[in-house]
Nucleic acid binder design. Structure first.
Length: 638
RNA sequence: GGCGGUGUAGCUCAGGUGGUUAGAGCAGCGGAAUCAUAAUCCGCGUGUCCGGGGUUCGAGUCCCUGCACCGCUACCA
């Protein structure tokens, strides 16, 4: 019996909705877990959400919710998205769950008691010295400052000391570096390993594991005035979900004995490859076996961003292609591990060529011939077919190469090899032209061709199951096969299907999608552009006038909002503006600004807003639009 | 500034330890076939393998150097 397999994704921060980046990691983890399961190992696949920290608390407040309520709401988006993508995780951990809080506090106690090899305390209290902006209520790094002042408030930060607990990372760096060098802790791909070793070379310092000013988090068990640093706590999810300090047997199986793999994108390398192993060492726990960091991808050559509007919502992808193809398409765009580019136009093209034309069409042409000529019963195999030796050989070897690829995280290569066999099978089919044989009366040989192709489809289905679980089962079910046949061992040998088996084929497995012609795409782009253009009448519909600010005050309970009284000449108005982070109420008084007068009134946080002021962002700063000359309030802009 | 990565056909990318005419998929062009989801199959690429040096009998593959892009990290500030 091989070691059980434990795979994790990062726990996703609930500040954000699930996007294609989260999906990518999660699908890959699901794929690996499913693969190991059908190759006869037990597998545990963990994902979840990271719910503590000041950013979550702020986001909750902005939404007018309690943090816990807010989290519940966002978590649902994640769970729904994973269900839609046929993600079969063994557990879903939330850092706000009691089991996690208890385990983290236990671990912190263990660390508190632990000593380094030199006999020093692993956790020590010290002073965190930093530049604190009282208006922001947070520490700023020197990088955040612009000209020595807080860019948001234009005030110099105070040098403040706060008591923190520190983790003595420096006592573990040598040992950890050696483990990575000796590849006892395997960091993949190689470039990432170099990057980690580079961090050691540059020197590392102890890091703070607690915060004084954060409230939404887990209090330290030995000092309740402090909250555990969200990263430290989040990392612990990998062991708290599998029974650390709660279920000894479970924990032994999945952490001490299993092959543990952490999967993630490369941006969180330092936390996972240095902090986390060091914490585990300090606590006397085994390290994970492998940490795999995949790359980033761009969409149509551009970084994904909300402002560019090129974020891909996984739900939309599933709606368009279905869960199986969505998984397939995401993981076949570029090799797993490196950075790459995802092109939207490629999705439809690749769906049609690989799935509809090659795989789906093979399924149909084989099934339909069996139904038409063999009374819907699988004919027996025959010898002496053109190219059958090659076909059978390749088919029987395929599982070995897929296993090799997937053990080494070459997901794309595993899939490509499998589709390669499908292509070979289409060639085999054409080479033997069973439709011609049937016409010539040689139904025996024609049947042999159909049998061989069916066998390939059986093998291919097993090997594609980790990527496309539903479709794999669907193809197997055509041959009357169920989940018991989802076993890599059964993909190794040809001639498993029983002649005479009833064929249950109804609809195309991967219906072909309409591809937009280039001319149509160009047409649409043109339309989009021209529809972006407006004529002067449309512009004139927006009545923008000069306004003078009479009063401004903060909206209580909202960080970003100001309630502003303005004079627009013939009347006085109240507007709500999201500029509190950039302008203090007093400095606004008397300022002349530009507002849209005829914007539909809105109620923001229960307060009426009649109009909108104009402002523009530059980097992290925001500037109000002001008239250059001394225009009186009410002057219409044109 | 340091470290690391990338740069190969129109597009996306393969190309262990250097070795015959540099590959795949997609797109494009031509043809065959008609069982099948207008799907399939066959044929078609004179690519400065980013530039320049070097090592070698021989380099996309090793060394040096330059350029472009990306990532990590530092410092100046």
């Amino acid at each position: 019996m091989r070691k059980p397999f434990y795979v994790t994704t990062p726990i996703y921060y609930v500040n954000d909705r699930p996007h294609i980046g989260h999906s990518y990691t999660t699908i890959a983890a699901d794929l690996l877990a499913r693969f190991h399961r059908i190759s006869g190992r037990e597998a545990f696949f963990l994902t979840g959400t990271d719910e503590h920290g000041s950013k979550v608390a702020e986001a909750a407040e902005a939404a007018g919710l309690e943090p816990r309520q807010f989290c519940d709401r966002v978590v649902k988006h994640f769970k729904d998205a994973w269900e839609k993508l046929s993600i079969d995780n063994s557990d879903f951990i939330r850092t706000t769950q009691d089991r996690h809080v208890r385990a983290v506090r236990n671990l912190l106690n263990v660390l508190r008691m632990a000593k380094t090899d030199a006999g020093e305390e692993v956790i020590y209290s010290g002073l965190y010295e930093g530049l604190y902006c009282t208006a922001c209520e947070k520490f700023l790094t020197e990088k955040d400052l612009v000209g020595g002042v807080c860019p948001d408030h234009n005030t110099p930060p105070a040098l403040l000391k706060e008591k923190n607990y520190f983790f003595r990372l420096t006592a573990f760096t040598d040992k950890l570096r050696k483990l990575i060098e000796k590849e006892e802790l395997i960091i993949l791909p190689e470039e990432r390993r170099h990057e980690v070793l580079g961090l050691f070379k540059q020197g590392l310092t102890d890091f703070s594991i607690s915060r004084e000013h954060v409230t939404w988090g887990i209090p330290l068990p030995f000092d309740e005035s402090q909250v555990c640093y969200v990263w430290v706590e989040a990392l612990c999810n990998y062991i708290t979900a599998i029974g650390y300090s709660a279920d000894e047997e479970l924990f032994k199986k999945w952490w001490h004995e299993a092959d543990a793999v952490h999967l993630m994108a490369k941006d969180i390398l330092k936390f996972h490859c240095i902090y986390w192993p060091a914490i585990l060492m300090a606590a006397g726990l085994p390290l994970p076996n492998k940490i795999f960091l995949h790359g980033f991808f761009t969409v149509d050559g551009a970084k994904m961003s909300k402002t560019l509007g090129n974020q891909i919502d996984p739900n939309e992808l599933v709606e368009e292609f279905g869960p199986d193809a969505a998984r397939y398409l995401l993981l076949t765009q570029y090799p797993f591990g490196v950075d790459g580019d995802i092109q939207r136009s490629n999705f439809v093209r690749k769906y049609n060529s690989d799935l509809a034309n090659d795989l789906g069409n093979l399924v149909s042409r084989v099934a339909k011939m069996i139904i038409a000529n063999y009374d819907g019963k699988l004919p027996p195999p025959t010898a002496k077919l053109e190219g059958s030796r090659e076909l059978i050989g390749k088919a029987e070897e395929l599982s070995e190469s897929v296993i090799d690829h997937l053990y080494n995280f070459r997901i794309g290569a595993a899939i490509d090899d499998t589709i390669g066999l499908v292509r070979l099978t289409n060639r085999f089919f054409d080479g033997n032209a069973p439709w011609k044989l049937v016409k010539e009366g040689d139904t025996k040989r024609a049947g042999g061709v159909l049998y061989a192709c069916s066998e390939v489809l059986r093998i291919v289905s097993i090997l594609l199951y980790p990527t496309m679980p539903n479709k794999a089962k669907e193809i197997l079910s055509i041959y009357g096969l169920g989940e018991d046949e989802l076993d890599i061992g059964l993909a190794r040998t040809f001639f498993q299907l029983k002649p005479g088996t009833e064929i249950n084929f109804k609809d195309a497995v991967f219906p072909r999608l309409k591809e937009q012609k280039k001319s149509e795409v160009a047409e649409m782009e043109k339309e989009e552009k021209s529809s972006e253009m407006i004529d002067i009448d449309e512009f004139a519909r927006a009545k923008m006038v000069v306004a003078e600010i009479l009063e401004a005050e903060k909206v209580s309970g909202a960080d970003k909002l100001l309630k502003i009284q303005i004079d627009i000449g013939d009347e006085k108005r109240q507007i709500i503006a999201g500029i509190a982070e950039y302008y203090a109420p007093d400095e606004l008084k008397g300022k002349k600004i530009v507002v849209v007068r005829n914007l539909k009134p809105a109620t923001i946080r229960g307060i009426d807003s009649n109009g909108m002021l104009l402002a523009a962002h530059k980097g992290k700063k925001l500037y109000l639009v002001t008239p250059e000359g001394d225009l009186p309030p009410g002057t219409l802009l044109s």
